[in-house]
Write a protein that binds this DNA or RNA. Structure first.
Lengths: 159, 159
DNA sequence: GCGATTTAGTTTATATCTAAAATATTACCG
DNA sequence: CGGTAATATTTTAGATATAAACTAAATCGC
């Protein structure tokens, strides 16, 4: 079963690469934009959904727990970057939306984010990036078992 | 600059795959072994270094903050899975080591871990796994800037 | 030797994260 | 209609994360 070992090695490599990039992103966000990765992720998801997202949609998209989003939304809200909007017809739900200030703030962060990624992955050609992304997509589905409600766009990113 | 967009897309895909697998691992570890991913990571690193690791080496290997390891080590220690050993000649340092019970406990976790990964990445052939791992390695170095003290083995994994 | 600096680790203050319990509201069903 | 189940969110308890302050010990330079 050397195949199993090879797959574990691949997994460890993936983990290492992703953690390395995440680490650098975190540092950069903190240094240049006084924010954090989870806050960026939330704002990014909202940026891709201009009408906002319900709390449950947001936690589904970001694949984090429900209660987690509450706290991040609270803090972003205190800073006036997002706002909670009542959902007409369902008094349980809330829709979270970027404010104008939030949009402006995020657009700067997104541009920087893209530049950082481009810099860190500079050694990967555009074509190779496309190829590898496609390959990854192939077993992305197999890995993530829980489907959840996939009514909105996808993972966190910049613009 | 479509290359930049392609690279960002690749990054998002990487993030999605890794988070998906991490999510499943977390669930499995909790369900079958009453433990967590960070605890597993610590025990895994110690398992690969039978003489133990100094706290600072451990936080370096796992790429987490210094204080973070203290808490995890405390809890693992309370359960008798690891132990702190004084370093002769340096009264500041401590070496963290798996106990016999810790080794036994971890070997079961590691076997399960390998099986889970093998299952999740079942769609990847052994050869493709090797190819992609090599490709990833190529820009792993470019991404992680901080070298740190690399005197011990590498990232977290199973056996 | 001895003071200034470095190094190792813990502690502190906060943010993030999870699972699970609690609330509130809506939907469903006989 | 009314009771039960399902849904949306927050709250809670506790683990994990960071950066920064702190303590203790070792090292360096003179």
């Amino acid at each position: 079963m050397t195949a199993a070992k090879d797959r574990v090695r691949l997994w460890l490599r993936l983990l290492k690469v992703v953690r390395g990039i995440e680490h650098e992103l975190r540092d950069n966000l903190r240094r240049d934009h006084a924010t954090t990765l989870p806050r960026f992720d939330v704002m990014s998801a909202l940026s891709r959904n201009p009408d906002g997202l319900k709390m449950s949609e947001l936690s589904g998209v970001l694949r984090v727990s429900n209660g987690n989003v509450t706290g991040i939304a609270d803090r972003l809200s205190e800073e006036g970057l997002v706002e909670r909007i009542a959902v007409p017809g369902d008094r349980r739900a809330t829709r979270l939306k970027l404010t104008a200030a939030g949009q402006k703030e995020f657009s700067g962060q997104a541009a920087a984010h893209e530049a950082w990624i481009d810099d860190m992955l500079g050694g990967v050609s555009a074509e190779e990036a496309r190829t590898m992304a496609a390959r990854l997509q192939a077993f992305a589905d197999a890995a993530a078992r829980s489907p959840g409600s996939r009514k909105v766009k996808d993972t966190a990113d910049a613009q």
